[in-house]
Design a protein around this nucleic acid. Sequence first.
DNA 1: AGATCCATGTAAGACGTTACATGATTTG
DNA 2: CAAATCATGTAACGTCTTACATGGATCT
Lengths: 198, 198
Amino acid sequence: MLDARMLCLAALMGGREVSGYDIKKELERGAATGLYDPSFGSIYPALARLTEEGYLVVRSEDAGRRDRKIYAMTTAGRTYFLRTLTAPLPDEKYRSPFLFAMLFADELPRSRVRAMIDRQIDLWDQKVDAIRDLSTDQSPCAGETFVNGFGLATLLAGLEFLKRHRARVEDAALVDPSAVGIDASHTSFSKAASGAAE
Amino acid sequence: MLDARMLCLAALMGGREVSGYDIKKELERGAATGLYDPSFGSIYPALARLTEEGYLVVRSEDAGRRDRKIYAMTTAGRTYFLRTLTAPLPDEKYRSPFLFAMLFADELPRSRVRAMIDRQIDLWDQKVDAIRDLSTDQSPCAGETFVNGFGLATLLAGLEFLKRHRARVEDAALVDPSAVGIDASHTSFSKAASGAAE
DNA sequence: AGATCCATGTAAGACGTTACATGATTTG
DNA sequence: CAAATCATGTAACGTCTTACATGGATCT
């Protein structure tokens, strides 16, 4: 649930007929963005399996460019999709490396804490913009409007909190980075493991 | 990052010495709850590997019960942990089957949409309570206070939105469930796939 | 005596990402 | 002509969950 399979089916709801490539591109800026954006390596196998299972049908389109497989949903596919949505839903998951790092803000260099918060604000601002674009772009159904509104409400509340309370964590952070064995040269992706063991 | 490894290290920060079992139990109701709660199948291998790598040390405690391995962090472990937190953080991920389902509320039976929203409100209410318990329980550091406040702010905003706007999606949902080939008997976990293909 | 909790660990399987392989077409 | 985009697919790898195996201790 909420895996590549379901995203593919979702993209084909309403009689839409698209290729795997199109699905990927649409998911990058669609209503489900922010929820899950699977890679090609997930999408293509998912489409193949859904077709095997009879939930989709393919048609090869040699028009102009290369092969281009156009997928469309079958009646069984639609039923399967809506049934899955109707069945008991698994719990939602929110994994935030940012918040996890903030838990230990008291032991991190102040400049880094500041940079992390700056970045989080940037990211969430972008998400807000993306949702606003979505709302003005098309004429969304009630479900989409609801989800967009929900996203907007939580994002704005989070941003508000970050801006209003950031000073408190930043003040608690370390002024002298050397205290944790971290100097100015750690901004790279270098594996911190090297030289630590064995 | 924000995997079982990091959670284990996080649980051992501040000179704490605990067993894998304890880590699991603490994560179920700790500051990082809601972020990630790994299973035993992730924790035990993670602890073993971290020990091999020199980030942790073990001591077997035969006191009273059975073996019970008590883990503690080494200096290398602390450095590794803080360095990882200081390095560029991966993006956060929010996967919500609830919101995904809501996108298609217009094609789902109204009673189910209502039940989903009820459940979401319950779950988020519980999360709010959990955070409030956490805040009163102990004397948390600035980082924890910040994260708890952030969680509270976003959760409350979401709850507010759900209560204020639920009527609109519910009204858009289907009154007659038979229109989607879904009758009253699908509330079970039965694989919807059976009989759909081949 | 049986159930439940404490406690650790392994194996199988699901799911996902990254990187690679391939090749046509369009754009600069 | 080189680079980017279109387009599909596979293989290697990592991570997590579930289920299983095991056994002592405590509670009812």
